[in-house]
């Protein structure tokens, strides 16, 4: 079932400044253009297009202004720390791990507001955090804990979520309507997704984020 009634256009709608590099393609099944983001990326749009990603233990927050339909999606995870999964994210919000999560969330929210979104209109949905490999510590849970804590601190309400469990997920989000399609993926894809996430993880370990985030 198509969740967006758009008619195929020869070209995708223009992207917002800063997002030109994100690859977009026509999704025949959904009858809409979708931008596909990878671990560590995010995307914000004012058009009726979708944003898609595949998640293992990573988290995607889908955030939109529910009046104007401006919104976007991120895709991130916290870098591993030596602390236990239960304590790692709580230990101190200055830890590199939490700072990376803050960075991913603030980048998305700031970009939505820079493009006209209003903070009091923001509607949030969260996905991912699966424990997709049986022999892996449950890093997904730590990511879920982080995002819940972050949103609570920021006073942002989660209106829908599908997190945890053992499945990889494919998420397609339409900021203009707030509709989201979550498809659980077969374990056949678990290793491929875990490998993408691991290479992203080793990348963020090597390149810690700077503290320069402009807060609105």
């Amino acid at each position: 079932m198509a969740i967006s009634p758009a008619v195929k256009q020869s070209l995708p709608p223009p992207s917002l400044p800063g997002f030109e590099h994100v690859r977009r393609s026509w999704n025949e099944h959904l009858q809409a253009y979708t931008a596909r983001i990878l671990p560590g990326e995010f995307y914000v749009t004012r058009s009726g297009e979708g944003i898609s990603t595949t998640l293992g233990s990573c988290i995607s927050a889908c955030i939109r202004d529910n009046l104007t339909g401006i919104g976007g999606m991120n895709h991130f995870m916290l870098p591993a720390t030596d602390a236990s999964p239960e304590e790692a994210w709580k230990a101190t919000n200055l830890s590199a791990a939490t700072r990376y999560g803050n960075y991913a969330m603030e980048h998305l929210i700031n970009e939505i507001m820079r493009n006209g979104g209003k903070r009091h209109n923001l509607e949030v949905k969260i996905f991912g955090g699966g424990r997709i490999l049986a022999n892996m510590t449950d890093v997904g849970r730590r990511n879920i804990q982080f995002v819940r804590d972050y949103l609570q601190t920021e006073g942002l309400k989660v209106t829908a979520e599908d997190v945890g469990d053992v499945f990889p997920r494919m998420v397609i989000y339409f900021p203009s309507t707030g509709k989201v399609r979550v498809k659980r993926l077969r374990s056949l894809h678990s290793n491929t997704i875990a490998e993408m996430e691991n290479s992203y993880l080793s990348h963020i370990k090597e390149a810690p984020v700077s503290g320069e985030i402009e807060l609105f």
Partner: peptide, 16 residues
Amino acid sequence: KESLLHVLDSGDELPV
């Protein structure tokens, strides 16, 4: 692996 990545790239629409 190329096949599986292609499937994921299609949003899991392309059959394996």
